[in-house]
């Protein structure tokens, strides 16, 4: 369970608008120092091609520049968190990635996975379940054009089992709690084994305890399936608890690009997490004085 996707970014220089001394020091620390158990195979896996790249991506709405010349490469299998104040363009970034929106300038490359694995899935802030479809049927929506009939049913039951809701397969969404509905939405997003999973503040509306449960579930499934996860959130502690790498977007630019090379499972409230959290908050709310 302690396998961690490292983040060497071999051929692409990290572009950080404002890199603090601390984050540079963190990045320059050799990975083996952090993870003596990281085997060559694992490193090889992580130097795979990029799952997606943004090259000079801008998005303007009228006069307002929401994303300004963004360069971003995300290696396959990485868990990246995107943080920013509301209105900073982080959701726009996800909508560009999932094809719900088109950039004003720049090129966006989304690589294909093996075979027909080129599936970018998005999990929204709201569960967005079809109220008129039973839970299993809702999960099968994730297999639209991929599987049908009993095959789809089996797959949906398997993934429902994974999120702990197999016994609710034949119920209506209206009888589930908020957290359960969001788990169904997660199952729907995962049932087709996405190559990239975009998460748009999916835990924002949940209560604190349910949120921690969901974070653990998300981490567990990510460790199993190893998709590329892009988590947009405004919760800094959630970002550092889950992600391999955190980027902070401020005024349409990447203000910080920070690796989180901590062992999993991470314990909430540990000093390392707190330190990284502080560093991110400093970037968000102006440079620290000392």
């Amino acid at each position: 369970m302690s396998v961690i996707a490292l983040n060497p970014k071999p051929d692409v220089p990290v572009k950080t608008a404002r890199e603090t001394a601390e984050s540079r020091a963190l990045r320059e620390t050799t990975p083996t120092q952090w993870f003596p158990y990281a085997t060559p195979q694992q490193r090889e896996r992580d130097t795979r091609e990029n799952a997606f790249s943004f090259r000079g991506i801008s998005r303007k709405f009228g006069d307002k520049t929401v994303l300004d010349n963004i360069d971003l490469d995300v290696p396959a299998g990485q868990f990246i968190a995107v943080i920013g104040k509301s209105g900073c363009g982080k959701s726009t970034l996800l909508r560009l990635l999932t094809g719900l929106d088109k950039p004003t300038a720049g090129t966006l490359t989304v690589n294909k996975g093996e075979n027909d694995e080129n599936r970018t899935r998005i999990m929204f802030q709201e569960p967005r379940l079809l109220p008129w479809a039973k839970i299993a049927k809702n999960v099968e929506v994730g297999l639209t054009g991929i599987a049908k009939g009993t095959d789809a049913r089996e797959k949906s039951l398997a993934i429902l089992n994974e999120v702990g809701l197999a016994d609710r397969a034949e119920e209506w969404p209206s009888v589930l709690s908020g957290g359960q509905r969001q788990r169904v939405a997660l199952a729907r997003a995962l049932v087709a084994h996405p190559y990239i999973l975009a998460l748009d503040e999916p835990l924002g509306a949940l209560d604190a305890l349910t949120r921690i449960e969901m974070q653990q579930l998300l981490e567990r499934i990510w460790l199993q399936q190893r998709f590329t996860a892009v988590l947009v959130t405004h919760d800094v502690s959630e970002a550092v608890a889950l992600a391999d790498r955190v980027i902070v977007i401020d005024h349409g630019k990447i203000a910080l690009d920070l690796d989180i090379p901590l062992e999993r499972p991470r314990r909430h409230g540990s000093p390392e997490l707190a330190r990284l959290e502080g560093q991110i908050l400093d970037t968000l709310f102006g440079e620290k004085s000392g």
Partner: peptide
């Protein structure tokens, strides 16, 4: 939001109509 969800999951126009719009 449900219509957008249906589109993201690759529903065709007909599927979208029968699975999302008509029941709604």
């Amino acid at each position: 939001q449900l219509v957008e969800m249906g589109r993201v999951y690759g529903m065709s126009r007909t599927t979208l109509f029968f699975r999302v719009i008509l029941p709604g």
